[in-house]
Structures are given as C-alpha cells and as structure tokens.
Design a protein around this nucleic acid. Structure first.
Length: 488
RNA sequence: GGCGGGUUCGUCUAGGGGUCUAGGACACGGCCCUCUCAAGGCCGGUACACGGGUUCAAAUCCCGUACCCGCUACCA
C-alpha cells in the first residue's frame, strides 16, 4: 500500500517545520491563468499550514523581462488577493549569490569552464539533428584540465560554467503529485550554470534561491518536471537537502492545446476587466486540477479552500479552461454577496465605464443591488444592462422596443398608466399591480402585453426582474415619468 | 526524433479489483412555475482511448499501440 505522502527522504527538520513556499514568475509576460493557479496553490498550501508564501521575480533574462510585466504580475496578484509574506525578491539583485555558488561548484569539482562558442554549439546541434543523433552537449570542455581552464578564463577568454552531470546511473525524485519520477543521467546534458556574461541560468538561480530562502516545497507547473533532475543534482552537489517537489498539471485551451491568446483572455487582469469577482476566480482556478474531499460543495470561499486544500488531491492530467464554468462561479458569488460587499466592486465597474450613478441614497442603492444581483452574470452588468436602475440616462435595447413597444395603442395605455400612478396615493407592489391589471381589463388588453411594454419603458430591456419590484425600486416619480415620456 | 508524463460524459472530476446497468458539478435538451429573463423544482441524453494479457471477476493491475502535453537553449 503506497502512502500518499511521498518524499520521506526529506529531513524531519525541513519536513516538520512550517512550510515555506514561493511563487516565482518570470516577468517576460503578464500573469496568465496557469501562473495564477500555481500561485494560488502555493498560497493555499502556505495558508493551510500556517507557512510562509514568498514572491520572487525571476528576471534574469534581461532581454525579455520588463518592468511593466513586473507591475502587471504584482497587480494580478493583488487583484487575486494572493498576499505574499516575503518579497518580492528580484533575482537580478541577487546575482552575487549565484556567482558564489557557481564558484563553489567549480571548486568542488562539480562544474567546469566551457569555452565553446554559441555558434559552435549551434552548428553541432544542427548537425546532430540532421544525423538523427541526440543533440546533447558533447562535454568537449570537460577534458580541459583545471589549470588550463583557469588560465584561459583569467586571460579573458569567454566561458560559461557547466555542471558535470554524472555519465551513468539515474536521478529520481518523489513528486508529491506524480509520484516517483526517474531520469537516466545519460539523458541529461552538462547544462550551463553561469553564462558568459556572468549571469546565472535558470537552474542555478532557482536552486540557489530556493536553498537561500529555505523553501520546503516547490509547487510549480508540470512543465518543470523535466528540469527537476538537473536541480536535484545541484542540491546533491551542494550537499543540501532537497525540497518536496509538487508539479501541477498545465491548463489547456478548449482544443486541448496549450492555453494561449487564441483561446481568448489568458491574462488574469483581463478577467478583472470582464467583471469577474476575484473570489469566484480563485474558486474556479482551485477546482481546475484539484478536488475537494467527496461530498464537499464546489462553491468554496477562501476559508474553506484554505482548510480543505492539500497537495495529494491534485490531479495528474492537464485541465481545460472552461469559461462557462467560470461564469457560473461568478454568478454564484455575485448573488451570494450582500449588497454592501457588492457595492464597492460595482463602483469600480462604474468608474471603469465612466458611468455616473444618480442614486445617492445608500439604502435604496443597496435595495436596488439586491434586486438585481440574482440576474447578474458579471459585475459589468451593473454598468450595462442594469444601467436604467442607476441613472435616467440610458438607451433602450432596440430588439426589446420592436418586440414590446411597437404597438401605438400599448404606448398610449402606458401613458395613461403613468398618469394613474402619478395620481395614486398607495404606490406599493400589490397596488401597482392591481392598478395595471385593472387598466388592462378596462382597455381590453392582455395584462402581459402591458407588463412587457412597461418593462421596456422602465428599463430599456426586455429582460429584468419582476416588473412591480422594478417599480418599487425606481419609485413612483421615476416610474410615472418613464411611462409617460417614452423616449424610444 | 529522444526522454518524461497523461488519457472516465462536451468540460472539471469521483472512483484505485466485485458495492459501477460508472456518481457529482458545469454545459446541453425537455417539462413545471411564470409579467420577461434568471433562479428554483422535476426529468433526460452523453464517458472508462484502442488492443492484448493477469484474474472466478478490471474503469481499477501488467504490456503494447494511438493520441495529447511537457522538456530537449549561454529562456524561464
């Protein structure tokens, strides 16, 4: 019977203490949904165990990293509510650490200088590919004596530092999600640790930082599985205990290929733009590849997510990003939030849309929101289809007008209805309904036709809450006025 | 190509030898409710990639094939 908690090889001192996890994005792009989920899992794990969540920016690729992307990632993290306890640390500010470790590895005989030029390597690779041979680095410079290498290096000859990968045997690790994963060492090339510009390579900087930051659990995308043996070798060469690795499967587009722009929005900030509630997005992301214990509902707020989350319930197969399900989570959250909680989110939406709310009485604002929220699919609805509830400055949906306000006699009766509301003393839901139905009977028209027409006159939409509830929220004045003066 | 991994309804998944004529959620279809649209209630269809084993018994274990994903850089 295999236990579900692997990697028992980790020293108790590390495994037993409070976990320290990190999210380490590279600012070569915005925060995409895959990265966001990785960040979320790290955050949930840290919060569940009372551990520490660290943010580290892996910006060692000067060519492709930009300050804007860093800002975007930070914004995305904040919007998602993934607050970090330490950092953000920037790798470009920590290069000394990496150089020191590279020098250590060199001194201990675990690494060596390589003088092969990029061009040389490239043509060798091309040739190998052509001949159908594996295009691994041939370890040419491994033969150079330590003395010769140091001499050439200090004479100014360009060089990189490569790791000496064992030529036989295998390197295995126990993944918390995938179980035991093993690679033949012969498949792993002598990878570069330090580039000729003295900058670290990914493998060096991650391991150096994870060691330095005392990371206990490396929770990251499954695209890193193949990199892991290299990193494991580094830990071992350094004589440092390995962390627990947990690789989480990737998120795919609807066509089951890697999620990309062609599939629609991949930046988490785009979902903020679309009126998604952060908590709904978190819940949705958590369910992509992770399953709560049997019998738990799928709508899980942050506290529940934190208390239920665990690494062993993470799936091993990639998951398709399902927009319809995200929207469902969003509607569930919107309808479950009290109006007070919704209001600031809606105000943000109004600000984005440049919309001016004309209801200044907080109480009626909240009542209106409560009436509307069960029908909201997105926060955006409050600035678009629900517009007529918050301002007199609204347009009508033309399809709704042709469907329910085409008949001149209906329009005429609506004016009459407006007059009667004006004149009535008791403007309550039952009386408003009674009044309308009586008028319909009087004019020999179906109440439904009048109701539908009135709805469009009042809201500009064919779709809205129950008409008389709408009237109450609008108030007598507005209701009467909109019925008497239909502008469309 | 090589190496690593994955494969249960359209999607996320439950399940880990008999309890599976395979369960849930989203989506979809129908009906009810009804002033529209949601919501809600009821009903419904759709899945163990394929082929071989092992076993009294396989969605569950083994092997192979197919397909998909990842890695294969002085990117991360």
């Amino acid at each position: 019977m295999p236990l579900l908690t692997p990697n028992l090889g980790v020293p108790a001192a590390i495994a037993g203490s409070r976990p320290r996890v990190r999210f380490a994005p590279s600012p070569t792009g915005y925060l995409h949904v895959g990265g966001a989920r990785t960040a979320l899992f790290n955050w949930l794990y840290a919060r569940h165990h009372g551990g520490t969540f660290i943010l580290r920016i892996e910006d060692t690729d000067a060519e492709r990293s930009t300050a804007e992307m860093v800002e975007g990632i930070l914004q995305g993290m904040r919007w998602l509510g993934l607050n970090w306890d330490e950092g953000p640390f920037y790798q470009t500010q920590r290069v000394e650490i990496y150089r020191k470790i590279a020098a250590e590895l060199l001194a201990s005989g675990h690494a060596y200088y390589c003088f092969c030029s990029k061009e040389e390597l490239e043509s060798r690779r091309a040739r190998a590919a052509q001949e159908g041979r594996p295009s691994r680095y041939e370890r040419t410079c491994r033969k150079i004596s330590h003395e010769d290498a140091s001499r050439r290096q200090s004479a100014g000859e360009g060089a990189v530092i490569r790791f000496k990968v064992p030529e036989s045997g295998g390197t295995a690790f126990e993944d918390a999600v995938f179980g035991r994963v093993e690679f033949a060492n012969a498949e792993v090339e002598d990878f570069v640790l330090l580039r000729s510009d003295n900058g670290p390579t990914y493998h060096l900087s991650v391991v150096a930082d994870d060691v330095d930051m005392r990371i206990t659990h490396v929770i990251r995308g499954a695209d890193h599985i193949s990199n892991t043996p290299k990193q494991v070798m580094l830990y071992r060469a350094l004589g440092v205990p390995e962390p627990i690795f947990a690789h989480v499967p990737l998120i795919l587009g609807p066509d089951k290929t890697r999620l990309s722009k062609r599939h629609g929005a991949t930046s988490v900030l785009a979902y903020r733009e679309e009126g998604i509630v952060p908590e709904a997005f978190r819940n949705f992301l958590a369910m992509l590849g992770w399953t709560p214990p049997e019998g738990t509902p799928e709508i899980l707020g942050d506290e529940q997510l934190i208390s239920l989350f665990d690494l062993n319930a993470i799936s091993r197969s990639d998951a398709v990003f399902d927009r319809a399900k995200l929207d469902w989570f969003n509607t569930e959250y919107i309808r479950s939030y009290p109006a007070e909680k919704l209001l600031p989110l809606i105000e943000e939406e109004w600000a984005k849309a440049g919309f001016k709310n004309q209801i200044h009485d907080r109480k009626s604002l909240l009542t209106t929101i409560d009436l509307l929220k069960p029908r909201a699919r997105s926060l955006k609805d409050f600035a678009t289809s629900f517009r007529a509830f918050f301002t007199d400055d609204f347009e009508a949906d033309s399809a709704a007008v042709t469907k329910f306000l085409n008949d001149a006699s209906v329009r005429q009766i609506l004016v009459e209805l407006g007059n009667r509301y004006d004149a009535c003393d008791d403007f309550s839901e039952p009386s408003a309904e009674r009044l309308l139905r009586n008028l319909a009977a009087e004019k020999n028209i179906k109440a439904g036709a009048l109701i539908n027409g009135a709805r469009v006159a009042l809201t500009g939409q064919a779709v809205a809450p129950s008409l008389f509830a709408v009237m109450m929220v609008l108030g007598k004045e507005r209701t009467a006025k909109r019925l008497k003066e239909i502008r469309f």
